[in-house]
Write a protein that binds this DNA or RNA. Structure first.
Length: 875
RNA sequence: GGAGGCAUAGCUCAGUUGGUUAGAGCGCUCGCUUCACAUGCGAGAGGUCGUAGGUUCGAGUCCUACUGUCUCUACCA
């Protein structure tokens, strides 16, 4: 293969992806001879295009999937998209607005037509983007939350829950978004600290001079007040309870009630009660049987109960009401006050708590088993700390409001008989009322919360409620990986849904990652305009670089920052791999390479194989712990430092030498190590590894279906690897000495070595000469034998002497040696101190004590040698 | 109000159950067009691991308090 000088991903990424698709490598079969390994994608919303968060999701999941696939599992990465009810509807409404149209203009059917067209367009785009990332999804199982399969599961689940009494309809306080004109679940409300005011109002007691002062942050709700509450223990108001107040502006008579909910110490100790517009007040209202008066319309304007304020927007009404209260003397005081205000997570409008008839899922019976599953380790969170957050939320969970006043979504499968009022909840569309046989039925207008269908994703996509082959084989899934920001929205709901409907936990591991932030640590957002388009990054640097940049240095659950510098570093690494491979392949050209099993390994070979084995172990171990960042880091170090900087350089003397057999043997090891490390790397950077792998002599087929390397202790070569470091230390020592005395690296020097490892050193003499820039090697017993003054460096296995020659400054050398001596003396002091400590000797593990002793001995020896060098320098 | 995270080199972060001389990338300094790679090579400088205690033979790592910072969650009218 002709390899370009520089890594250019555009030359092969698309081609290889097409090839993988073509060969059907992504397809996971329900193969009983294999163990299944399943991950379902966190389905991206069809609202737009992928961002870096999705890119991270995909990189993590794809790495795990490819790893397991290579290990022989039947690995299924199940892809799909979410219809994102409210988010998509908002987008389509915006789009229609540009044409001057509203939802009502086009009608429900017309609107849904547009929505499906939108889905085709953006869903398709997302799939293309994922392919660019190189993900090995099984596209034959591509799903959509509103496709027939998933919709059937939604229907099944809704009806079952309804029949069990776990879904009910009722008037409750819910979060209402006047912008989207729909109810929201608690999870869909975002709170932010907003500066506002406290308005203190005076409500007069009927037929009396007395009055009571209440404070509010939403004065417009006073129109709906139906009581004022005080604490029953509050002496100040003891004789007021039971009296009647006259509501200013409105003139309505309302009672003073006593309720424990009121905090005596807060404000005036009296609270205006507006059951229709406040969740706490609603509860108080229930306890005291108070009327519920709603004063607002669905769009946030005031309704007919607001009297003269009818038709005004809620914030206009607020101003007007405050003005009028002031005019009639009911406004006592205005106080600046900042408090948390709820906003719609989609359109950011201020959310209004409003009483409304909605559908709810009763959470308490579902939460118990879901808590249990995590508490009993049936599901494990990584990092573990998120289980606390999960418990915290699950234990205090309220009923889930699942109806949305939207059109895009799963329509609630409930019909109302227009004649007898019968409520029909059915898996199939009813044609007549089972009670009165009327055919005059009307389906509930609302659709379901988008997360209702997402909650079923791990099993709806696999065929539930049918016991399909896929369902039986791939369910429960294995790992669920997503950002920690959707634990409540999604993960928790999948857990209770899975347990309730399939009687099994939907997955065994939850792997959470953090948020990808921008270079300054800010969240990426449209309004800040700091979002990064993965496609642009891929276009500039390649998918592998993006993947590697996203995965390096990240620990589970931790936020990370994206920067161009990181992608560049990753791209440089790709280039490094590219060129190392180019080097190996170029040298292998036309050479008959023996099997690595037939090669007698040189010390350098054993060293790199030893390093490779520990790399295999580390990668495998860390993949198992979901520490992908550590696994990737280990590979980076191994390939760049060990393989490129050392082993390839060490090989050059034999590759460029005359011994053809030796050259062939070296190439065999080079190819073996390269091939093995590419396999290790493949889950992270699939394209470059595939492109190179197929060209390495002795490989067959695709790397993505090759076997993942297994650690083999037979090749650990611990002792040999350690011994070989003597050679490396000699090279480092010479380089170091040269730089310190300003000797040009190209200038060849004579080496005199005092070492007990003459055989090892001789065997690697060529490499030492080449890498250290030396002309010859001679063995001596001491520096005195060199016959002239020398530079010297003491290493563990060898003392290296270089004749001073004419270039050198004795003063500088003395300085260097004393600095080294100082360091060694420090080490001796430290080790000695440790060994003087009885506690250490008695309590520390024996091997550590022994190691410390050996170290001390070594340092003492080195100290003596350095002292001798200093003496000789002065002689 | 409750809960959780983070604090390690100039910057961004690793540091696995406490145990070699605390690491990497980027940046910085010096030197290299060495026949895979200047998207590179070699050699360096740079850290009292937020503060104060404690447990331990031994603490970046465990415990307590404090400071700073970020996030989640609840919501007091």
């Amino acid at each position: 293969m002709e390899m370009q000088k520089n890594y250019n991903p555009k030359d092969f990424e698309d081609r290889l992806y097409a090839e993988w698709m073509d060969k059907n490598y992504f397809r996971a079969e329900a193969d009983p001879s294999k163990i299944p390994f399943t991950i379902v994608i966190p389905p991206p919303n069809i609202t737009g295009q992928l961002h870096l968060g999705h890119a991270l999701d995909n990189t993590i999941i794809d790495a795990l999937i490819r790893f397991k696939r290579m290990q022989g599992y039947s690995a299924l990465y199940l892809p799909g998209c979410d219809h994102a009810s409210i988010a998509t509807e908002v987008k389509i409404v915006e789009e229609m607005k540009k044409e001057g149209l509203t939802k009502n203009d086009v009608g429900r059917d017309g609107f849904l037509e547009r929505a499906w067209a939108w889905k085709e367009k953006y869903g398709g785009r997302i799939v293309e983007q994922m392919k660019k990332m190189g993900v090995s999804c099984d596209w034959s199982r591509l799903s959509f939350t509103m496709d027939e399969k998933c919709s059937r599961a939604v229907r099944e689940v809704f009806v079952n829950l309804y029949n069990k009494g776990l879904i009910y309809r009722g008037d409750r306080i819910i979060n209402w978004c006047p912008g989207c004109k729909t109810a929201l679940s608690d999870a869909e409300v975002e709170y932010s600290e907003d500066a506002s005011f406290f308005w203190h109002l005076k409500y007069p007691v009927k037929d009396s001079d007395e009055s009571i002062i209440v404070a509010t942050t939403r004065p417009e709700t006073m129109l709906g007040d139906t009581a004022v509450a005080v604490n029953p223990k509050d002496k100040r108001y003891k004789n007021m309870v039971g009296k009647t107040l006259v509501l200013p502006l409105v003139g309505r008579e309302i009672p003073i009630v006593a309720d424990d909910y009121v905090d005596m110490k807060f404000g005036s100790g009296a609270v205006k009660i507006t059951p229709a517009h406040d969740p706490n007040d609603f509860e108080v209202g229930l306890r005291h049987d108070l009327p519920v008066i709603r004063v607002m319309n669905d769009d946030g304007s005031m309704n007919e109960n607001a009297g003269k304020y009818e038709g005004l927007d809620r914030f206009e009404a607020r101003e007007k009401i405050v003005e009028d209260l002031k005019a009639c003397g009911a406004l006592v005081k205005i106080e600046p006050h900042s408090h948390n205000v709820g906003h719609c997570y989609r359109c950011k409008s201020t959310v209004e708590p409003i009483v409304s008839k909605q559908w709810f899922v009763k959470m308490e019976p579902l939460a118990g088993p879901a808590i249990d599953a995590v508490a009993r380790n049936k599901i494990k969170f990584t990092p573990e700390r998120f289980s606390k957050i999960y418990f915290n939320w699950m234990e205090g969970i309220k009923d889930w409001c699942i109806s949305r006043q939207l059109w895009w979504g799963h329509r609630i499968p409930v019909w109302y008989c227009q004649d007898c009022g019968e409520v029909i909840c059915s898996k199939t569309d009813p044609t007549e009322c089972p009670h009165c046989h009327s055919t005059n039925l009307r389906q509930d207008e609302d659709v379901l919360d988008t997360w209702f269908s997402s909650a079923l994703w791990p099993f709806s996509t696999l065929g539930y409620p049918d016991k399909t082959e896929d369902f039986n084989y791939f369910y429960p899934t294995d790992v669920l990986s997503c950002g920690y920001d959707i634990i409540f929205f999604w993960v928790a709901r999948m857990i209770f849904s899975g347990i309730e409907h399939t009687k099994k936990v939907p997955f065994r591991d939850v792997l959470l990652h953090g948020i990808v932030r921008d270079e300054q640590g800010r969240k990426m957002s449209k309004s800040l305009g700091n979002g990064i388009d993965p496609l642009e990054v891929i276009d500039e640097y390649g998918a592998d670089s993006l993947r590697f940049a996203l995965i390096t240095g990240v620990a589970p659950g931790n936020d990370s920052r994206y920067s161009k510098g990181k992608v560049e570093a990753a791209r440089n690494f790709m280039n490094k791999i590219w060129n190392a491979s180019r080097f190996v392949l170029m040298n292998a050209e036309g050479v008959d390479i023996p099997s690595v099993l037939d090669v007698k390994f040189s010390p350098a070979d054993k060293w790199i194989i030893s390093k490779l084995e520990s790399c295999i172990r580390e990668v495998t171990l860390n993949m198992g712990k979901f520490e992908l960042g550590i696994a990737a880091g280990a590979l980076y170090d191994f390939l760049w430092s060990d393989f490129c900087d050392w082993y390839i350089e060490l090989c050059k003397s034999s590759l460029y030498g005359d011994d053809a057999n030796k050259k062939a043997a070296t190439l065999s090891v080079l190819c073996f190590v390269l091939k093995t490390s590419l396999k290790l790397l493949h889950p992270f950077v699939p394209f470059i590894t595939e492109e190179i792998y197929q060209n390495i002599p002795g490989t067959e087929g695709s790397i993505m279906v090759s076997e993942f390397p297994r650690y083999n202790s037979k090749y650990a070569y611990k002792k040999e690897a350690k011994a070989f470091e003597t050679v490396m230390d000699i090279i480092k020592a010479v380089r170091n000495m040269k730089v310190q005395v300003n000797c040009p690296p190209a200038k060849k020097v004579k080496l005199f070595l005092a070492t007990p490892n003459k055989r090892l050193v001789s065997a690697n003499a060529n490499a030492i000469l080449k890498l250290a820039g030396a002309s010859e090697i001679a063995f001596v017993e001491s520096g005195a034998e060199v016959g002239e003054k020398t530079l010297s460096q003491v290493t563990e296995g060898c003392t290296v002497f270089v004749p001073l020659g004419e270039l050198v400054d004795i003063e500088k050398e003395r300085e260097r040696l004393s600095k080294e001596l100082e360091r060694i003396v420090g080490e001796i002091r430290r080790a000695d101190g440790k060994l003087q400590n009885r506690g250490f000797i008695d309590k520390a593990p024996k091997n550590l004590v022994d190691a410390e002793r050996a170290k001390l001995e070594k340092f003492i020896e080195m100290k003596a040698k350095i002292e001798r060098q200093i003496e000789e320098l002065d002689a």
